[in-house]
Design a protein around this nucleic acid. Sequence first.
DNA 1: GGACGATATGCCATATCTGACATATATGCA
DNA 2: TGCATATATGTCAGATATGGCATATCGTCC
Lengths: 104, 104
Amino acid sequence: MKPDKRKRLESAGWRAGTPQELLRLSDEEAAYIELRINLAEGLRVHRHARGLTQVELARAIRSSQSRVAKMEAGDPSVSLDLLIRSLLALGLSHKELGRMIGPD
Amino acid sequence: MKPDKRKRLESAGWRAGTPQELLRLSDEEAAYIELRINLAEGLRVHRHARGLTQVELARAIRSSQSRVAKMEAGDPSVSLDLLIRSLLALGLSHKELGRMIGPD
DNA sequence: GGACGATATGCCATATCTGACATATATGCA
DNA sequence: TGCATATATGTCAGATATGGCATATCGTCC
């Protein structure tokens, strides 16, 4: 894992065990969290590309601005479902989604 | 949408509105459901490829056989989170996951 | 036929996610 | 500086997903 990515993991409140065993994640957990972060960042990028505010996107997906903010922050309280629904609402195709998850 | 895929949508209990306006889904809804079905089928394929039973996979992800069955059936009650966690538990890489979602 | 392993289906108490709201912190502009 | 607009953060009651369990159905042996 690249150092900058690790930092983003830490700052987002993703902590596996006790403070002692700081950030000792299984490969699987790490992959899951990285995936979420990729989608979260992708959401922000594509929202901006469409010139939408968080409030506008929230309306489009019948959610709230705070939820959108949490999505983009990679907050653990938001589900992949909501994240992916939002990306689809932005008009992303399966292909684009796929590339966002597993870049070539 | 291909006819066989539509059939799978119907049979899985995915119905948008009233029985009258049978299966009139928005593009976005359809994309979301197709995505789930792709993952559901992928889960079954990869579980079989590893020679695991539903019970064994359930243990690996600390879930239950019934949940695994529902996942593979594309049951609306299971989240993308669980689906994707399961695929990662089977050892799929981001790249493979990406390809599974948006095939080239 | 029966017996077995694998999978499907239905239910439910509880855990987790949800939108909504309040409020705080930016960032830019007059 | 004050005043917009955008985004971040915290909380909470209600909605949805969860594992676990019982039970049904399927295949495939004997």
